[in-house]
Amino acid sequence: METVKQLQKKYGSMAMFIAIVLALALIMLGYKEMAKGLMLGSIFSVVNFVLMGESLQSRLGNPGRSGTMSFFSLMLARFGLMAVPLVVSIRYDQYHIVATIAGLFMVQAVILTDAAKRMMFSRQL
C-alpha cells in the first residue's frame, strides 16, 4: 500500500504547507484569529484525510469481511471529529469561524487545484 501512503503524505503536507504560509501571511497582516482558525481547520482536515485512508484500507482489499457497518460508523466518527474545530471556534473568540471552515476544506482544495493544474498545463491531461 505504498502509493496510498505517498499520496496521503503528498496532499497532507501540501495542505499543511499552504495553511502555514497563509497563516503566517495573515499574522503579518494582523488577523491573528483568522490565522489560528485556519490552522485549526487545516489540522483537522488533514487528520480526517489520514483517517479516511486508514478506514478505506481496512475496508477495501479484504473481500468477505463484512466491514460495511464499521465503515459507516467510522465515517460518522470522522464527521464527529470534524465537528470539534467548529464547536471550538464558535465557543472561543480567538479562532475565527469563517477561517476554520475554510481550513476544513484545505485538503479538498489542494486535491482539486492539483487536478485543475494537471488538466490545464498538460496536453494529454
Partner: peptide, 18 residues
C-alpha cells in the same frame, strides 16, 4: 492494482465527502 484503486478511491472519497 489494489494499491492504485485504493489511492483513487481515497481521493474521490475526499472530494465526494465535501
Amino acid at each position: 492494482m489494489a494499491g492504485e484503486i485504493t489511492r483513487n478511491m481515497l481521493v474521490g472519497q475526499a472530494v465526494a465527502e465535501s
